[in-house]
Simulated scan of single mutants.
Amino acid sequence: MEDRIQQHLNDKKANPPIHVYSYQFNGATVYYETSPCCDQYTTLYAADGKVLCHPDGGFTGRGDGKCADFSKNRTEEKLVWQDPR
Rank of each mutant, 00 (worst) to 15 (best):
H8Q: 15
T60F: 11
I5D: 00
V30P: 00
D39Q: 15
R85V: 11
R4P: 03
L79E: 10
L79V: 06
G58F: 08
S22R: 05
P55E: 03
K50G: 03
G63V: 02
N10T: 03
Y32K: 02
G58T: 07
P84K: 15
C38R: 14
Y31G: 00
I18R: 02
Q7Y: 07
V80R: 03
I18L: 12
A46V: 09
H54F: 09
Y31S: 01
Q6K: 08
L79P: 04
K13G: 04
R4I: 12
S71T: 11
G58N: 07
F25S: 00
P16N: 07
K50N: 05
Y45C: 01
G61W: 02
G58S: 09
A68F: 08
P16Q: 08
L9G: 04
L79D: 06
F25N: 01
G27L: 07
N15K: 12
F70G: 01
K72P: 07
K13Q: 07
R74N: 10
I18G: 01
R62S: 12
H19L: 15
T42N: 11
M1Q: 13
T29E: 04
V80C: 03
G49Q: 05
Y41A: 05
G27K: 10
D69P: 06
Y21N: 03
P16G: 06
F59V: 12
Q82W: 02
E77S: 09
C53K: 05
E2T: 09
M1H: 13
S71D: 12
N26F: 14
C37A: 13
Y41N: 11
F70M: 03
P36M: 09
A14L: 01
D69N: 13
P36C: 12
G61M: 08
P16W: 04
D3E: 15
T29C: 01
Q6G: 04
Y23L: 06
G65A: 02
R4M: 11
A28Y: 08
Q6A: 09
F25V: 03
T42K: 11
F59N: 13
K66H: 13
L79N: 07
P16S: 05
L44Y: 00
D11F: 04
A46L: 08
A46G: 09
T42Q: 11
W81A: 04
F59M: 15
Q6W: 05
K78D: 03
R62E: 13
F25W: 11
N15A: 12
D11C: 02
K12E: 12
G57I: 09
K78M: 07
G58E: 05
S35L: 05
E2W: 02
T60E: 11
K66I: 07
S22C: 05
K72M: 11
Q7A: 07
T43N: 03
T29F: 00
Y23M: 04
Y32P: 00
Y45L: 10
D11S: 10
N73D: 12
A28H: 12
T29K: 01
K12T: 13
Y31L: 05
C37L: 14
H54Y: 13
E77Y: 01
D64I: 06
R85N: 14
Y31I: 02
R62T: 10
G58I: 08
H54Q: 15
R85G: 13
D69C: 09
G49C: 02
T42C: 09
Q24K: 15
N10Q: 06
